[in-house]
C-alpha cells in the first residue's frame, strides 16, 4: 500500500466521520494493512494515542491474527465478528470484541475497512443467560 492511501479514501473518510460521529462504540476506518485512516469521537476518548496515520498493528498483542482478520474483512461488506487485544499507553492490555467489514474498494484494489470495538466484558453479557443455565 502506498503512502497516499488516504487520498484514495477521502470520500469514504468523510462518509465515515458523518455516520460514526454519534456512534457510542469505538469506530475506526482502516487501511487493509491496519493503518488508521480516521477514528470517531468515542475512539478518541478511549484511545487518544491512536490517531490517523497510526499503525494499529503496533498496539495489537497478536498482530498475525489481526492481519488475518483484516484480510477476511477486506473481502466482504458483511460485518465479521472477531476479538482482539489492544495495548494501552501504560503497556497494559485490554480485550475487545469487534466487527469489521469492507467500507470501500477502489478500482486499483485499495480497501478501506470499518472496525467497531466494544469491551469484551460487554460482549459476554449476551451469553450470561446461557452461562447461568450451564452453571
Amino acid at each position: 500500500m502506498d503512502a497516499n492511501i488516504t487520498l484514495h479514501h477521502n470520500n469514504v473518510a468523510l462518509d465515515f466521520e458523518s455516520f460514526a460521529a454519534s456512534d457510542t462504540r469505538i469506530c475506526m476506518l482502516l487501511n487493509a494493512d491496519g493503518t488508521v485512516i480516521a477514528v470517531n469521537p468515542a475512539s478518541k476518548r478511549a484511545m487518544p494515542e491512536i490517531i490517523p496515520g497510526s499503525d494499529l498493528n503496533n498496539y495489537i498483542t497478536d498482530p498475525a491474527d489481526f492481519r488475518r482478520y483484516l484480510h477476511q474483512c477486506a473481502k466482504t461488506r458483511g460485518p465479521l465478528p472477531g476479538a482482539l487485544s489492544l495495548r494501552d499507553s501504560n503497556q497494559g492490555a485490554r480485550s475487545w470484541i469487534c466487527e469489521g467489514g469492507l467500507a470501500k474498494r477502489t478500482p486499483d484494489g485499495h480497501a478501506a475497512l470499518v472496525l467497531r470495538l466494544q469491551g469484551a466484558e460487554l460482549g459476554k453479557s449476551a451469553f450470561a443467560t446461557l452461562n447461568a443455565k450451564i452453571v
Binding site: Q72, K75, L80, P81, G82, A126, F127, T129, L130
Partner: peptide, 18 residues
C-alpha cells in the same frame, strides 16, 4: 437464540470464509 440470527450468521460467516 442467544445472540440473534444476524450475529449468529456473522459467526458462521467467519467459518465460511476460511
Amino acid at each position: 437464540n442467544v445472540v440473534g440470527i444476524e450475529d449468529a450468521a456473522g459467526f458462521i460467516s467467519v467459518v465460511g470464509t476460511t
